[in-house]
């Protein structure tokens, strides 16, 4: 087994013409750099694009001999990725520019459709309560409800998968909801996130 070479040695070997060294460097830092990019852009395809552009810059810089080795390969690559992320947001005009004056409120531009921490906790609680309540339903109704709500299947697809008519599937869904409401009423359960 080949002893593990550190980054600076691999960079030197790559500059000297050993292409395999680049492969080791990419594989070694793939997850860390990808996770860093993904944490900013939240899109897997964009992450892959920026990852690719980052290493294209790395390759060009190394081949041009413009890289000064200070034992900091990963932070240097991260910095390139960071700059490309900023370029990405600039290009997509996703990063609102704040030009402060009295007529302009930054919060009218920046929208956040995510739930706040408290509402997210309540939502999680409701989701887990609902999962328990659904378990109380008869199997045929439970099956239809899970396919419709959690798997987002159409009633046509549900009827094909369960071997019943569309009308039967619709009926089972209706009874599932009625029964869920009954169970909720019977146990005085409050499900709300207003």
């Amino acid at each position: 087994m080949e002893p593990q070479r550190d980054d600076s040695l691999l960079v030197q070997d790559y500059i000297s013409g050993e292409e395999k060294a680049l492969e080791i460097l990419i594989n070694r830092h793939n997850q860390r750099i990808s996770s860093f990019i993904y944490s900013k852009v939240l899109d897997r395809d964009v992450t892959e694009d920026i990852f690719q552009d980052t290493f294209i810059k790395v390759i060009k810089t190394l081949k041009k001999g413009n890289y000064s080795e200070e034992g900091k390969f990963l932070p240097w690559v991260m910095r390139i990725a960071h700059n490309l992320i900023i370029d990405h947001f600039r290009k997509n005009k996703r990063m609102p520019k704040f030009e402060g004056n009295d007529d302009f409120n930054i919060f009218s531009v920046i929208g956040d459709d995510k739930l706040n921490a408290e509402k997210q906790l309540i939502k999680d609680q409701i989701d887990s309560d609902l999962t328990l309540l659904i378990e109380e339903l008869p199997d045929d109704q439970k099956e239809v409800l899970l396919m419709r709500i959690y798997k987002d299947m159409s009633f046509k697809e549900i009827s094909e998968n369960t071997g019943v008519s569309i009308n039967t599937a619709l009926g089972r869904m209706r009874y599932a909801l009625i029964n869920l409401r009954k169970i909720i009423d019977r146990h005085n359960i409050v499900l709300t996130n207003s």
Partner: peptide, 26 residues
Amino acid sequence: IYSTKKNACEIPKAGPETIKFLLDYS
């Protein structure tokens, strides 16, 4: 129940095609 969102838990990583492209480019 959660099958439609199963890849939400996967750690993002550049795929083999991207790595191959970079090595070929190099």
